[in-house]
Amino acid sequence: MLKISNLVKRYGHGEPVLKGLDLEVPGNSVVAIIGASGAGKSTLLRCINRLVEPTSGTIALNDIVLSDLKGRELRAARRRIGMIFQSFNLVDRLTVMENVQSGRLGYLPFWRAASRRYPKRDIRRAYELMERVGIAHYANKRADELSGGERQRVGVVRALMQEPEILLADEPTASLDPKTSEQIMELLRSLSAEFALPVLINIHNVAEARLYTDRIVGMRYGKIMFDAEPSRLDKAAMDEIYAGLPAEERGEEETPAPSLQVSAA
């Protein structure tokens, strides 16, 4: 269970990006975080595994407080948090297998990592997971030879190789075409059930969020404006999350009637 309380993040001396955020993600639920760009979704996710340093507040994963770990302990904690990125963040010039195994880097001794002599157990697991997502026959291909959807599957397998206790996905489908993004969302949902993993997904596409997740968190100005199951995300809630923003910012296929009032940002 992930537990975030009173999380604040401020870059430099500006307005805080996250303003005292509280969030709990229990068990194996798939949670979508929606909101306009600049709402703080990405910062929130990166605060959890401390790619971004929180200004204050606490984050705990399964009763281990992440927010004040340092060095070796922090790295050990990061192993247990898998992350999937919008632009896949693969190392293009390495093979798919090396990219996948890089999810194990936190566990491997240095000489094994350097000489690419991965333990049998890891190789077995890699092939299993790659087969599960349908990329096992690409193991020896270079990552930049793959299509977008395949690359994101490599990203997913890399995260699963960590044997994570939670998956964070930052706009995992934003660089993909609609059909592929549905496949990836479906994959994330079924993996969540299969591995009993909580999955936290930043997502721009509200339609996808409604379809593939159990719970939607709506953010605006670094605060949570909405937190309930998808069926309760009605027009009023949408307006609260997206008020005053142009329709294309709303990430919905069906364009709602434009609201005339412009809120002071």
Binding site: N49, L51, L74, R75, A76, A77, R78, R79, R80, I81, G82, M83, F85, S87, N89, L90, V91, D92, S102, G103, R104, L105, G106, L108, F110, A113, G155, R158, A159, Q162
Partner: peptide, 15 residues
């Protein structure tokens, strides 16, 4: 971006 991704897996600096 790949650097960020590998930092997120808990890999040490050298790796």
């Amino acid at each position: 971006r790949p650097v960020e991704a590998l930092e997120a897996t808990g890999a040490s600096r050298l790796k």
